[in-house]
Design a protein around this nucleic acid. Structure first.
Lengths: 207, 207
DNA sequence: CGGAGTATCTAGACGGTGTCAAGATGGATT
DNA sequence: AATCCATCTTGACACCGTCTAGATACTCCG
């Protein structure tokens, strides 16, 4: 009775296919990712991925799971390296969030593409929940610092923060931030400030 | 010298194909949309769409253009029906934004899918710019009401508002709002209030 | 009114895709 | 050493986007 991710003929084909898929996503974007392409890149036959993932959705789900894990790790590093002030930690997390999204546009798109993934697979849910819990823990002290007491209100604020950061990242990747009159994605640090430290924006100090 | 969208053999095949594509998007999602499927639904041969759109990207671009037009119209209706108070108008626009996204998840995903569309086509750019200008005009008086004076600051606030609304809509469609501890997308009206009217959220009146 | 020109659409083919069924392979277990 | 079963290969099928050539029918002009 052994788990599926142990060595057999190939070594660890499952992991190799996920890595190949991530590499293809980075090079060719979501449209370029293909079961056969990942198989070829891993040096196996075209039908090999079906055994490990069942379908293309299965491979996408596995890739998204790894994506959430790396996302969680990237945010964790940024938070640990930040000063202890709640706003500074939120600022660092926001920067890391957008940074991850901009550096891995195809993966983040996949992670938040909803029905394209199989959310009945536990590893995906766990990885996503862990990432969200991390964000939640960052918002909590900032909310407390702001005087938010009720739980409903705190969750609402949490969702607001998440929405703005996520939306900014998505708009950046959609090319809509940078096109036309809006600034580039370097503006992200000010978002956290706008939300928590320097409000209302009218009487804000010079950046 | 006639335009391409006049009647010939079919009537107006170009429009019929766009409509068929939108219908397929609504029924089967982005993965279900196919050039051949749209052609079959419109009752023409499998290669007919290539003449009008060149490629699948061309059809997607045409659909996204219509999407931006309908999006603009939906926001316009909501804004016109709202009270004149800046915050109320912003609230109405936010609700309409998220409502459109939730009702047309595949289309809004397509509209903001970046490189998947051909942004060198003028109609798409014009439709998108018009929609953004509309949002910008809604934020302007609210920003003025808040005491924002400098142009840079106003654009930053504008981007912030757009990001939070858009992010909320995207998270709703990703299924991440509603899963786990976060509330459903009915929370959207409070976002505008959170941003402009009832700040800081700690000392807010009972909804 | 009738032929020419051209916009529109069809028919067929090609390589590539996901998925399924059946068989080959070889490490692990007894 | 014999067996078992996880792993992977081979081959096939339907469907996809796209290209080419040709058929169709609207429009214009003489």
């Amino acid at each position: 009775m052994r788990k599926a991710d142990q060595k057999y003929h190939h070594g660890d084909l499952r992991k190799a296919l996920v890595e190949a898929g991530i590499a293809i996503l980075g090079e060719a974007g979501p449209e370029g990712l293909t079961l056969r392409g990942a198989a070829a890149r891993a040096g196996v036959s075209h039908a090999a991925p079906a055994y490990h993932f069942g379908s293309l959705q299965g491979l996408l789900t596995a890739i998204a799971t790894v994506g959430f894990q790396r996302f969680h790790a990237a945010l964790g590093r940024a938070i640990d390296a930040a000063p202890t002030r709640p706003v500074e930690r939120l600022r660092a997390a926001s920067r890391a969030y957008v940074g991850f999204a901009v550096e891995n546009p195809a993966i983040i798109q996949l992670m938040f593409s909803g029905p394209r993934l199989d959310w009945s697979r536990a590893p995906l849910c766990e990885a996503a929940d862990r990432a969200y819990a991390q964000l939640s823990e960052i918002v909590r002290p900032a909310a407390a610092h702001l005087g938010v007491t009720t739980e409903d209100r705190r969750r609402e604020l949490e969702l607001m923060v998440w929405s703005s950061i996520h939306g900014f990242a998505m708009l950046s990747n959609a090319g809509v931030v940078g096109r036309g009159p809006v600034a580039g994605h370097e503006a992200i640090p000010d978002l956290a400030g706008l939300l928590f430290a320097e409000w209302p924006p009218g009487r804000v100090s010079q950046k």
